[in-house]
Design a protein around this nucleic acid. Structure first.
Lengths: 180, 180
DNA sequence: AACCCCTGTTCATTATAAAAAACACTTCAA
DNA sequence: TTGAAGTGTTTTTTATAATGAACAGGGGTT
């Protein structure tokens, strides 16, 4: 169900960059990127070429994919990074297709912000601040949350998170259904 | 190395026609044909869709592919039919990629013929007539072979096989390297 | 024979994958 | 601070997969 996530997990497990893997299997690095983000549906021949460079065969690759689907426990290093630009979102599980829940281990670097244009999507979300402080705006309400504080709201409401402090802010959050 | 042959083996093993399989997985029947003849390199998603209808998962599919590569023994029903039009060529092994030899169990129906335009390709070939009679033409030589008789020639020479009798003609042949 | 239903193959069109290059960003060293 | 080398992403073009329809043959009925 998730060729991209599986490839990502296996590649990073081996400490390879997309370009390094691309070089080893003779595939364009952009193609690896597109496959990992599930933006394209690679051919069997191409996937075989890539997977062989891990090195691994296709049977093992798809067996691993099934293992991932039934995975229960995750080491800190296995959480999938889906953030960027000073905001780290480390997701529990690489493939959330068909799952009800998306859990994130979030770290906002000082002075980072989810953006002036408010976020909104279907579902509900909640979280607990572990350390640091975060300014949370939801619709017409705004507050600053510190360690132990929490939030919970309908994701339809426009929302924004901003770390206006000097320390990184660490939050553990959950959303249903997964939104990206 | 041989997605097409593997799919063919699994499909026929289950007694399914290409169209029946196509119907079950929602894929065009022509696509199944092209995949089995290795004329196209299917996407992972499409192969998954097809393989699931067997039913089977991709890990099992590719594990089977590896088994096939190491297969030593073949039941009569497992020989792959690559002939047509009254001439049956039943090949030993579905995937001859990288193999040195192509062995065929051939049956020429009465009045069948490899064609007026002579065959020629690289390699050498030989065979033994098991039953029936066959007219064999190689370059400027022609003869009729019966049970126990045999032939061996360089495949570059133009050649033609013709069953001019009333009975089916059964031949066991070998060619190196495999030519199709 | 004429028809129907099945088989697998082939072709023209459309959709999409793959490559190559440009892009945006980070890190490190000069 | 500037440049070089690394990261992953995105875009444009080209190649190719996938579809749907047409094709050609096989087997059985009427």
């Amino acid at each position: 169900m998730d060729v991209g996530g599986t490839l990502y997990a296996l590649r990073t497990q081996r400490g390879l960059s997309q370009r390094e893997l691309a070089r080893r299997c003779g595939v364009a690095n952009g193609t690896i990127s597109l496959i990992e983000s599930n933006a394209i549906n690679p051919s069997v021949g191409l996937l075989r070429q890539i997977v062989n460079a891990l090195p691994m065969n296709l049977s093992e690759f798809f067996a691993f994919e099934h293992l991932e689907e039934r995975k229960l426990f995750y080491r800190a290093s296995e959480l999938r990074e889906i953030g960027g630009k000073g905001i780290s979102y480390r997701q529990i599980g690489t493939n959330l297709n068909g799952r009800a829940l998306q859990m994130l281990n979030e770290v906002y670097a000082p002075r980072t912000d989810t953006g002036k244009t408010m976020l909104h999507h279907t579902g509900e979300e909640g979280g607990v601040v572990i350390s640091g402080e975060i300014e949370v705006t939801v619709a017409d309400q705004r507050t600053i949350l510190g360690p132990g504080d929490a939030y919970y709201f309908d994701s339809h409401l426009p929302h924004r998170f901003r770390n206006i402090g000097q320390e990184p802010c660490h939050i553990v959050s959950a959303a249903t259904p997964p939104s990206f």
